Structures are given as C-alpha cells and as structure tokens.
Simulated scan of single mutants.
Amino acid sequence: MAESTRVWFSQPLETVAIWWRLERRDGVTLGFTSHDRDLAFDGLVHRTAPGMVPSAIRRTADFEADSAEVAGALSHDAIREADLAAGRFDGGSIAMGLVDWETLERVTLYAGTIGTVGHEGAGFSAELRSVKDLLAREIVPRTAPTCRAEFCGQGCTLSANAFTHLASLAEVSADGASVRASGRPSAAQLAFGTLRWIDGPEAGITRRIEAADGTWLVLDRTSADGIPPGTMIELREGCDHTLETCAARFDNAVNFQGEPFLPGNDLLTRYPALQP
C-alpha cells in the first residue's frame, strides 16, 4: 500500500499509532509501534513497544536539517543493552511516522540515520540525523598532504578483496582493547584497517584497528567478554594515507588523492634561508 495523503488528526478521535523502523549496519531490521498489538506492513512486523516513543520531531521547509529523538526503556527483547554498548545500532538508518492501526494507512514523518546511542540505568536515548545532513557535506575537497580517498574506495581504485584476509582469533587482551590473530599478514600491515567478527558474541560487528602494538591489534572499542580463541574474523589491511606508503607499498601513487608538496599555512611565518 502506498503512503497515505490524508490529513492526520483532523477528527476528534482517530485510530492512529506511531511506528518506527531501525536498520542496523549489520543488516538486522527491527520495527516497533506504540500500538497495543503488533502491526505488519511493508514486509515487516512492527512489534508493540509502548515504552519507546519519539520525544520530538521537527520538520522544516528549507534546507535546515530536520531533528528528532527517540527515547524509552530497555524493555523490549530486541533492544538489548549489550547491543547498544557494542555499537550495533550506531550509524544505522531509521524511519518513523504514523499508521492507522485499522486500515494500515501510513505516512513517514522522519527518515535519517542513528548517531550516538546512550543509556542511563534502564533507559536509552538516540541522536537522530536527518537525510538533509547530506546537504551540509563539503562538495569541494580541501587540500591536504595526506590522501583523502578511503582505502580501496572511490578514488583509490585498489581492490578490497586483495587486502582482505580470513583469520582466527588467537587471544584477547585482559582489558578487551586489543586482540591477536593467527593466519594473517603482519600487524603493521593491518594498522588503520578493520576487523569484522564472523562468529561469536560480536558476529557482524566491524571494528577499526587504530594501531599495531607488536603483534597486538589495538581496536577502537573494547571487545565483549568471553570471546573464545579460534573465533573466525575478517581482517582488512589499512593505509596511513601518505604518499610514501601509497608508492612504496601499493604502487598506486598515480591515484594519490592529496597534495603532499603543497606549502602549508606556516610558509608565511618561516624565516628566509640565506643561500651560500
């Protein structure tokens, strides 16, 4: 059924409920409604979750980004505190709107992405970013001595498959911030790359490798407790985005997306050098 064009809340009493849909970056899609029973539409069952409500939705007619926030209690089985802490909902997409729970007529009031998700005690709140935020992107790239292109992304032209490796977990550090892997390239080659958990309690989650410390890979977020050795992981090599690495390691200097020899702002403050 196409979205309704009716005027909502034009009558004293209406059979209207709120719906919202969350699509995590790992592909899991969850639907919820403020109605007292589940509602199925758009190929998804929206589970009743009266404790979760959008606290505010603001729409604008200009280019200013719309704003919204959703808050509630951690009472639904699909919203687990461990998943929030692990970042499974960070960066996912969200849509919310109104639905007539008798006819299933519906309208979308807000669509965007999930920013930071926080929780205090038994509650949680999520920062939502409107799709209008895309209009705020810088179209003209800024000059920089390092490469602006994402490694193996647009502009880089290198194949991601050539730098992606299956491996198994050898060990997790006591604080959960670092891991060691077996069946992989050197840790130095993996710095600034990514680690994706294939199975185990964090299956589907991708972590950024911030640095290599000897044979250890330092992750951007601590791992869950109890991940056993032998857990399958996928490792993507990284790049420090310098011209030297691009040329010597990847032989890809022709596609370098930076200006390593462009003088910086400090050029005007330098003292002149006397020539002999």
Rank of each mutant, 00 (worst) to 15 (best):
E3A: 13
S4W: 04
S4H: 09
T5E: 08
T5K: 08
V7T: 14
V7L: 14
Q11G: 11
P12Q: 10
V16L: 00
R21H: 14
G27Q: 14
G27R: 13
V28H: 13
L30M: 15
G31F: 01
S34Q: 06
D38M: 08
L39A: 10
F41D: 09
G43M: 04
G43E: 10
G43D: 04
L44K: 00
L44M: 01
V45R: 05
H46R: 04
P54T: 09
A56V: 10
R59C: 12
R59V: 14
R59T: 13
T60I: 02
T60K: 03
A61F: 12
A61H: 07
D66P: 04
D66I: 10
E69V: 07
V70W: 08
V70M: 15
A71P: 00
A71G: 11
A71Y: 03
G72D: 06
D77G: 13
D77K: 06
R80I: 00
R80D: 01
E81K: 11
L84H: 00
R88D: 02
D90A: 14
G92Q: 09
A95C: 07
M96A: 03
M96V: 08
G97P: 02
D100P: 00
E102N: 03
L104I: 01
E105R: 12
G112N: 02
I114C: 09
I114A: 05
G118C: 02
F124C: 12
S125V: 05
A126P: 01
L128Q: 04
R129M: 12
R129Y: 10
S130Y: 01
V131C: 03
V131Y: 10
V131G: 04
K132Q: 11
E138M: 11
I139D: 02
V140T: 09
V140F: 01
P141K: 03
A144V: 05
A144T: 13
R148K: 15
R148T: 12
F151H: 05
C152Q: 05
G155Y: 06
C156R: 06
T157D: 13
A160Q: 09
N161R: 14
A162I: 00
F163I: 11
F163C: 09
H165N: 09
S168K: 06
L169G: 07
A170L: 14
A174S: 15
A174T: 14
D175Q: 01
G176H: 09
A177D: 10
A177S: 15
A181C: 14
G183N: 12
P185K: 11
P185E: 09
A187F: 06
A187D: 04
A191S: 15
G193L: 08
W197L: 12
D199N: 15
P201S: 13
P201T: 05
A203K: 15
G204W: 02
T206S: 09
R208C: 00
A212C: 12
W216Y: 07
W216V: 07
L217N: 06
L217S: 05
L219N: 05
S223T: 15
A224L: 14
D225P: 08
P229I: 08
G230Y: 03
G230T: 03
I233L: 13
E234V: 07
E237D: 13
G238F: 03
D240V: 09
D240S: 14
H241T: 10
L243I: 13
C246T: 02
R249A: 12
N252L: 03
N255G: 05
N255C: 07
F261H: 01
F261T: 01
N265Y: 07
L268M: 12
L268D: 08
T269W: 02
T269Q: 12
T269A: 15
R270H: 11
R270W: 08
Y271P: 03
P276Y: 08
P276A: 14
